[in-house]
Design a binder for these strands. Structure first.
Length: 561
RNA sequence: UGGGAUGUAGCCAAGUUGGUAAGGCACCAGACUUUGACUCUGGCAUUUCGUAGGUUCGAGUCCUGCCAUCCCAGCCA
């Protein structure tokens, strides 16, 4: 299923959409993605973005982008820009339909006045603590506020004074008059406007009162002619209020809200608050640190939009609480990269190998296709010479059972080059093998089977020592060591589960052609994994590669149990 | 102990009017292999669909009870 970007999403929402079209409730499918600009988008948002944009698209509809900026104390333009960049990166387009909830502040205010005139809203004088006390508990109904039945005239006057800044922050709120005895707290006369003197990133100091999400959101949806307002499960309880607002204001053909389960991933945190803490505490280098599950972090790590979209399509959409295995996301990534990434030879942990019977000073250039699965080959020149580097892990003096890489007297194939046989080992004073001497078989040029039909089990990668270039490589692992980062012992928290090895810097030996890569481009370091030329810290003088994901490694699994 | 939701394999998830449990990931076995990768083949819920009953010739699908988990008492979204 991977990489079938045209695959339709079939889920309960699609079913609802089809029924709505069949019944005539809606003519055009119109959704919206409504991020709050108070943090960076992460993989969980990617699910919502895909659902919002894709459900509309596959039904011939459109999707708006709308920033939910009703709380100026938390929101900022920095986030607006980052969010747009991330959505575009995923490949979605909102054309000219970029909106802000703040675009509708005037209308929200006018509708609030209407609500007051209709006796459906009132100004509350009780303090926040008092309001809380009056709200009741899970098992007890709330009590009506003594201010609940003020006259319409008084409410109108007070609300205008709220707007005009005649009260202090928090001194009054505007409440919807619904039902203090409702078992659903959201209907116990919810606040719909609060006084808040904060500079708004869009409206500046024009307002000192701001509408609450529950009030502004349905209005924004209705004004934009949204047909299906899709959100996550925690808003299920808010739906009756969503409907109440639209009904009270009197919108015809109001939008409907539907909820789906948010994405949880093993080894991953998807709480904006906690991600912010990682950034502020310097646990990571920023929102775009390659270990972050943010879209900007994943992008730097080397994830592709295709992999993420395939993933979202594969996990489906349902209402059941779920935690998806990170392995599925990685599967989608590998599936995509396997098809598209160029193959380069890079030795991460070099071990020097001297080919004794190869002529001193001789040099050969192998012309090889490094894009084996693409339609059009991409060829590079790969130099070979007497001294090469191989991976330390590709040699074992005392080989494990079924180890078929290089070992004493053993023969292996150097990819695209020659068969070599180990003849001699050189160790340092501590006993560590620091050099291996081999002989090569000239009849295996290109790595081909010799005339005698001799086969070899192991095939390893290599880099010519005299041609090798040093490159910085950052080996990334999961940020957390436990599938559930939040699972901690008494008094502990997710910080206790940080992986001390989430980032390892090394200097690797690479073939010269690796330097031809573009910033942000993916490639495979043959047999080692997929890597990406870092788009931020890398320079021409000092290229830096990030390990996106390792290759699946059956041997490691066998060897380490 | 109020309300809202959800419970199908280790993890996601199909399962449209009841008719005899899709698919993917992971895992296991094997084939292939100039990446122990990829690819391919086979296996992987059969006293079973949270559970206990009931209706029915027949129930994951209908009815009743129970259990578990998640969300809700922001002037956050």
């Amino acid at each position: 299923m991977c990489n079938e970007n045209e695959a339709r999403m079939t889920n309960f929402i699609q079913e609802i959409i089809e029924n709505d079209i069949a019944s005539g409730r809606v003519k055009e499918i119109h959704t919206r993605f409504p991020p709050e600009p108070n943090g960076y988008l992460h993989i969980g948002h990617a699910k919502a973005i895909c659902i919002d944009f894709l459900m509309a698209k596959q039904n011939g509809g459109i999707c708006n982008l709308r920033f939910d900026d009703t709380n100026p104390s938390k929101e900022d333009t920095e986030y607006v820009d980052a969010i747009m960049e991330d959505i575009r990166w995923l490949g979605f387009d909102w054309d000219d339909r970029m909106f802000y909830a703040s675009n509708y502040f005037d209308k929200c205010y006018a509708f609030a006045v209407k609500l007051i005139k209709d006796g459906k809203a009132y100004v509350e004088d009780l303090s926040a603590e008092e309001v809380r006390a009056y709200r009741g508990t899970l098992t007890e109904p709330g009590k009506d506020s003594p201010y609940r039945n003020r006259s319409i005239a008084e409410n109108l006057d007070l609300f205008e004074k709220m707007k005009d800044g005649q009260f202090a922050d928090g001194q009054k709120i505007l409440r919807a008059k619904i039902d203090m005895a409702s078992p659903n707290f959201n209907l116990r006369d919810p606040a719909i406007y609060r006084i808040l003197r904060a500079n708004h990133h869009r409206t500046g100091d024009k307002w000192c009162i701001y509408p609450m999400y529950d009030y502004a959101h349905p209005i924004g949806d209705a004004l934009e002619d949204i047909s299906h307002s899709l959100c996550t499960l925690e808003f299920e309880d808010h739906r009756p209020l969503y409907d109440w607002v639209l009904e009270a204001i009197g919108f015809e053909n109001p939008p409907h809200q539907y909820e789906f389960a948010r994405l949880n991933l093993t080894y991953t945190l998807t709480s904006k608050r906690k991600l912010l803490e990682l950034v502020e505490n310097g646990v990571v280098s920023g929102w775009d640190d390659p270990r972050m599950p943010t879209l900007s972090g994943l992008r730097r790590l080397g994830y592709t939009p295709t992999a993420i979209i395939d993933f979202v399509k594969m996990i489906g959409v349902s209402k059941a609480y779920s935690v998806v295995d990170l392995a599925l996301l990685e599967h989608c990534l590998r599936d995509e990269l396997n098809k598209t990434a160029k193959r380069h030879m890079v030795v991460l942990e070099p071990l020097k190998v001297v080919i004794d019977n190869y002529p001193d000073g001789q040099e050969e250039i192998f012309d090889v296709n490094i894009s084996p699965l693409e339609d059009k080959p991409v060829n590079i020149k790969r130099p070979f010479s007497k001294v090469i580097y191989i991976e330390k892990s590709d040699f074992m003096e005392n080989p494990a059972h079924k180890y078929f890489r290089l070992k004493p007297q053993g023969e292996v194939r150097l990819i695209n080059a020659y068969f070599i046989t180990c003849q001699e080992i050189i160790k340092d004073e501590t006993g560590e093998v620091i050099e291996v001497h081999c002989t090569y078989d000239p009849q295996t040029r290109g790595g081909s089977t010799p005339p005698d039909g001799r086969k070899v089990k192991g095939t390893i990668h290599w880099v010519s020592a005299q041609h090798a270039v040093d490159v910085d490589v950052r080996l990334y692992e999961n940020l957390f060591t436990t599938p559930d980062p939040n699972a901690a012992s008494e008094g502990g928290d997710y910080m206790d589960n940080l992986n001390p090895n989430s980032l390892t810097h090394i200097i690797a030996k690479a073939e010269p052609a690796l330097l031809d890569m573009q910033a942000g481009e993916n490639c495979q370091f043959v047999r080692m994994g997929y890597f990406c030329l870092d788009a931020k810290d890398s320079t021409v003088e000092k290229p830096i590669f990030n390990r996106t994901v390792t290759l699946k490694d059956t041997w490691k699994k066998i060897n380490e149990g």
